[in-house]
Simulated assay, not measured.
Amino acid sequence: MIMLVGPVGAGKTSLINVLNKSCRKAEKTSSICFSDGAIDTPGEYAQIPRFYSALAVTATNAEIVLMVQDATDFRIALPPGFAAMFPRPVVGVVTKIDAPGANQEDAKLRLFQAGIKEPFFCVSAYTGAGLAELTDYLVRKEV
């Protein structure tokens, strides 16, 4: 099972849908949601410190945490070292790489500052770019 964490609007639900080959429309995630081998988390949980403990506890149900950063969002939404609180391996995923103004290197830097080491995966749920590499990685990790 994978758990996706990241700020509001980063594309977590869309990424889950495309990884599961689901045609569901992405809607605002209002609570932690377990489905189809994935744990979807509200962006507010990554942005409001009082929810951090809920994320850390929920991560014990996952084999790996995917920390998601939108390539078009230049805010620093995740605190330095944020990834260290998770009891599972954390992998960085840069989303929306096909969007106008996307900057993959800045997004990777935000993930690095949040405490993630390589590998980083740059993907587009819209075009499918980078999804094969991410999927292959997850299969190799037996997630």
Rank of each mutant, 00 (worst) to 15 (best):
S30H: 12
V57E: 12
A62L: 05
S35F: 12
E118S: 07
Y45S: 00
D36R: 13
P80W: 00
I76N: 15
I97M: 10
T41R: 01
T60S: 14
L66Q: 01
V94K: 15
R50A: 07
I64Y: 14
G81T: 01
A56R: 11
A84P: 09
R75Q: 15
D36N: 13
V94C: 12
P89Y: 07
A38Y: 11
L111D: 02
T95I: 03
A114C: 04
A102H: 09
G101V: 09
K117M: 11
V94M: 10
P100H: 09
F74N: 15
Q113V: 14
Q104F: 12
T29D: 11
G92F: 10
P80K: 04
F86W: 09
L55F: 02
P42I: 01
M85C: 02
S53M: 13
A56D: 02
A62R: 00
F51C: 05
A59F: 02
M85Y: 01
G81Q: 05
T41M: 04
V57L: 13
D106H: 15
P79D: 01
K96A: 06
P89F: 10
I116G: 12
A62F: 02
P79S: 00
A54D: 14
A54G: 08
P42F: 06
T29L: 11
T60E: 14
T60W: 10
A99P: 03
Q47I: 01
A56E: 09
T58Y: 02
L78C: 00
F51L: 00
P80H: 04
G37K: 01
T58G: 03
Q69M: 07
E105A: 15
G81W: 02
Q69L: 06
A77Q: 15
L78W: 03
A83H: 02
G92C: 08
D73K: 10
L66R: 00
Y45M: 01
E63M: 06
G37S: 07
A56Y: 12
Q113A: 14
